Amino acid sequence: MPRELADLPFAHLLQPHSGPWRRDERYDTAHFDGGTYQGVQAGGASFLECAFTGVSVLEARLRQARFTEVWLDACRWVATDLAESEWQDATVRGGLFAGIAGYSAQLRRLVLRQCKLESVNLRSAVLREVVFEDCQLTDVDFGGAKLTEVSFPGSSLQQVRFGGAKLTKVDLRGATRLDLPDGHEGLRGALISSVQLFELAPQFAQALGVVVKDA
């Protein structure tokens, strides 16, 4: 995976872009460097082979936007509507996603590295071949989502929910913390370590209505 902007196969094609994002607009090989996009209405916009560096997106509406072969470095997405958006072949490094509506989003071949996700709604989303590497996930809701070949190496999961989710080849063994307040039945199909099983045993027992009593 690319580590620097210059490593991108389309780096030599990138052109600086300024100005607001617009609804249903197509952005191709654009470089968004710095700046704050607050309150933009860009639903249905398409970003192809674009790079985002140090960008802040605040209280924006990007429903049904499409991000294909994009690279994001040190970007902040706060209180933004990304519901039904599509992300494919994308890399996100050192980013913040807080207060995000991402329900029914489509995420495919996406790598998030050293990112923070706080209060992110991914209910009914579809995730395929997604990697959360060294990330912090807090109050992230995967309820009713479909996760296939998703992994969390080095990531901390706190108050993360999987209620009603459908998991296939989801690897949780690399997670450094696994705090799941409810929805444990949604873990069917996940891989966990024996240590994680021991730590989650009381919650599994409670979910199953099993009383554990030694005397």
Rank of each mutant, 00 (worst) to 15 (best):
E118F: 05
V92A: 12
G174L: 00
P202Q: 08
L137V: 05
Q136P: 00
E69I: 02
T176M: 08
L8R: 07
H184S: 04
L200S: 14
E133V: 03
V78R: 13
P181T: 01
S124G: 00
G43K: 00
L178Y: 04
L157M: 13
V55D: 07
A90Y: 07
G186S: 03
V195F: 02
L8A: 05
A42F: 14
D7W: 10
L107C: 07
D134V: 05
G39S: 05
L5M: 04
L13W: 12
S193V: 06
F10R: 08
H31S: 13
R26K: 11
F52C: 03
W87L: 11
Q114P: 00
G54T: 09
V78W: 13
V92P: 00
S124F: 10
L122S: 09
A6F: 05
L167G: 03
C75F: 08
E118D: 11
Q203K: 15
W71G: 00
L117M: 15
G163D: 13
D141G: 02
S124L: 13
L187R: 08
L110F: 14
G43H: 01
H12C: 01
G163T: 09
A105N: 03
C50Q: 05
Q158E: 14
P153S: 03
Q159E: 10
Q38A: 11
Q15N: 02
L62D: 05
V131N: 01
R128P: 01
P2Q: 06
R93M: 09
F52A: 02
T36Q: 12
S194K: 11
S194R: 15
G174R: 02
L5C: 00
G143Q: 12
K146W: 08
F204G: 03
Q64N: 14
G164H: 08
E185R: 13
S104M: 07
C115E: 01
E185W: 05
L8H: 06
L147P: 01
L127Y: 04
G43R: 04
H12W: 01
V92M: 13
A45N: 05
R93F: 13
F52V: 02
Q136A: 13
V212M: 05
L187D: 14
D182E: 09
A215L: 13
L13T: 10
D141N: 10
C115Q: 00
A207I: 06
C135E: 07
S104N: 09
L112A: 15
A65S: 09
K213M: 08
D179K: 08
A190Q: 04
Q38G: 04
A125E: 04
G163K: 12
D89W: 14
Q206N: 09
V70A: 13
G164F: 06
K166G: 05
Q64H: 15
K166M: 07
V210P: 01
L197P: 02
G99M: 05
R23D: 10
W21T: 02
A207G: 09
